[in-house]
Amino acid sequence: MELRHLEYFLMVSKELHFTKAAEKLGISQPTLSHQIKILEQEVGYPLFNRVGKKIELTKVGEIVQQEALNIQGSIQSISSQIAAFTKVEIGELKIAVLPGEITDLVSTLCIQFNHLYPNIKVFIQTTDQVEKAVLENRADFGIGFQLNQYDMLQVTKLYDEEFYLISNQSNEEQTVSFSSVLDGPLILFPSMHQCRKILDKTSYEVGKQLEPIVETSSIKSILNLVRSGVGRSVVSRTLYEFYDTEDLFFQHIEKPSLTRAVYLVMKKNCFINYAARKYIKLLVREIEKLHFHTEKDSITSLRSSIL
């Protein structure tokens, strides 16, 4: 049984006239009659009683009519849902991110995304196994640092970001050496935090011990403690840009400089849903607006492939 046959049948059952139904369908009356006969053969019973030029539905025809209307409604519902999905009116978005400030970046952008697409459910999964989440289809895409390369994954470098020394006092020097950073009291994230791991690694390489006066996983607490003069802190530019830091002062860290690359990871040769595309478009726009150090070739390639 073909959908076309049901479509023809429903038009005849509506018009109760083969010629009128054929005209509305844009086919000849003999063709329509032939198609209805094929449908009747498949059903095994007549669908219309033919009395002269008039026709009426048989009892079997009434049953087929009701079920055909149900099928037609389901097909229209499917089309409507697909149209809504492609227009980012419904659906869900799953993002995997490493613990730390990237989670703050992703969460902050969700505010903009929700304003634009309020019916999209967003799930942010904080995990240290971003690649695995994407490979197992638990995330539409992931964002992290120094991602492992897998043949099944497409990894795109989004931007390079540096780390700042922040304090509540202005300093004429725009830069500060890493060794000088360690000289004063520091308020830092716990050792499990991605930012802290970079600081621990660098301090070990320069032969110094990192001993913060306060450790907290709350960026707001860090900023408030710095404001109150308890100590200084080291934060990524991502955090510095996305929080209210206008009353604080920052210095670039050098000798060595602290930077890291931020990557976007997706599954190769896999359909990227429209919600994910719209979110990534917002992310790229925000990165460019903040003038992060991006690789133009990577962003151009990303745009051409999914944006």
Rank of each mutant, 00 (worst) to 15 (best):
F141A: 03
I280Q: 01
S80D: 12
S305R: 13
F123M: 07
H115K: 15
E56T: 14
E286F: 12
I280P: 00
Y240V: 00
E254C: 04
F9Y: 07
L93D: 05
K220Y: 10
Y8I: 00
L248E: 08
P256K: 05
S74Q: 13
L290C: 04
A84V: 00
I299V: 04
R50I: 15
E173N: 14
K268R: 12
K20I: 02
H17E: 08
R4L: 10
L302S: 03
E215H: 08
L10C: 01
Y240H: 08
K53N: 12
L3N: 11
C195Q: 14
Q72R: 14
I253T: 10
T127V: 06
V97I: 06
K201H: 10
G91H: 07
P256F: 11
F18G: 00
K94S: 09
S218R: 10
D200R: 11
K132F: 11
I111P: 01
Q194I: 15
K157P: 10
F141S: 02
T245P: 03
F249W: 08
I222V: 11
P118G: 03
L225F: 15
T156V: 13
Y240N: 05
S170M: 13
S257M: 12
E7I: 12
K220G: 13
K37N: 10
Q169E: 14
I78M: 04
A96C: 06
F123Y: 11
K59R: 13
E161N: 06
R237S: 12
Y204F: 12
I90N: 10
K14H: 07
L307H: 08
F85K: 15
G207W: 09
E2W: 02
G207V: 01
L109R: 07
S217N: 13
L248P: 11
T245V: 04
V235T: 01
I71C: 03
R285Y: 07
E62Q: 15
L47H: 03
P256D: 05
Q29L: 01
G142A: 12
M266L: 14
G207N: 08
N273K: 14
A83L: 12
L10D: 04
F178V: 00
